[in-house]
């Protein structure tokens, strides 16, 4: 049985127009067509500046804050365009959670960090909030480490804990899709393996898109893998197939470490 398509990207091109005449127009994504299925982990691999992050930021419309961002093509979330004029951007961002490469905790307490999103959604009851806090911290495997210090500043946590707090904060929004942009690039191996375990656990409830620089990580956790190079989608397929029997020469060169 074929899984449901959660996100459908069709002929999507993202361009950053120059602000000054001496700059060149930068095409970050060119003609990407890709389907992302429900309850899967899609790993996106590729060298720096290949458009991986731009793709994530286009899905939850975070690129909108740059005035020189232009796109053609479309991205559908549950068959509805995220770029439709009547779409509420805040709603899209809640449905498609985003975890940044470096842990960005808000300079507030652990509790406040998690409640930030739910409070904006209008949840104000204390019991409801504490339930959300407990649930999301447990899903990110952080609860046992911080349950006695929820009022402490989130800045007092270690890097790995901060990143898991960011994941918990995203889970607290009750999203449908979670996108992670190189979530472990700044972390030690132990924190990394904790986060990878978390992701595999989360797969049953959410659709996950994982951008990673670490091809081994993609092989470990991804159901499907997509390889990007120079703003193009080179190859897409089951992780096993990509890593054992890639169709494209460039993919093979990249995963065997010949470049990138």
């Amino acid at each position: 049985m074929e899984a449901n398509i959660k996100i459908q990207i069709s002929h999507f091109t993202a361009t950053f127009k120059p602000r000054y005449s001496f700059e060149k127009t930068c095409v970050s994504l060119s003609d990407i067509t890709l389907n992302i299925y429900e309850n899967e982990i899609l790993s996106i691999i590729g060298p720096a500046r290949s458009g991986k992050t731009t793709l994530l930021r286009s899905i939850n419309r975070l690129n909108d804050i740059h005035e020189n961002f232009f796109k053609t093509g479309d991205i559908l979330l549950d068959k509805e365009s995220v770029y439709h004029a009547r779409v509420d951007v805040a709603d899209i961002r809640r449905r498609v959670g985003f975890v940044f490469a470096r842990p960005v905790v808000l300079p507030k307490s652990i509790w406040e960090n998690i409640c930030y999103g739910p409070k904006l959604k209008g949840i104000s009851k204390k019991e409801e909030l504490s339930q959300i806090v407990e649930e999301s911290l447990k899903s990110a495997y952080l609860w046992d480490e911080v349950k006695n210090r929820l009022k402490d500043s989130a800045l007092s946590l270690s890097g790995g804990q901060q990143q898991r707090l960011c994941i918990a904060r995203t889970i607290a929004l009750k999203p449908e899709v979670i996108m992670l942009d190189e979530p472990t690039s700044a972390l030690d191996p132990i924190s990394t393996s904790k986060i990878e375990d978390t992701l595999v656990e989360l797969k049953s409830k959410y659709t996950i898109i994982l951008v990673t620089n670490n091809t081994k990580q993609a092989a470990r956790v991804g159901t499907k893998t997509a390889f990007f190079l120079m703003s193009k989608l080179i190859e897409y397929g089951n992780t096993e197939q990509i890593f054992t029997n890639p169709k494209e020469k460039q993919t093979e060169d990249y995963i065997t470490g010949r470049f990138g």
Binding site: N60, L62, I65, A90, D91, R93, R94, G97, F98, F100, R102, V104, V105, L106, P107, Y116, G117, L120, K121, C166, R169, T170, L173
Partner: peptide, 24 residues
């Protein structure tokens, strides 16, 4: 980064300003 994090959690521009930027 803090602004982006706030946006990605579903905050509007004004909410980001009052809840994250100004307190900092």
């Amino acid at each position: 980064d803090l602004r982006e994090a706030s946006y990605s959690l579903g905050a509007s521009k004004w909410q980001t300003i009052t809840k994250v930027v100004l307190p900092e």
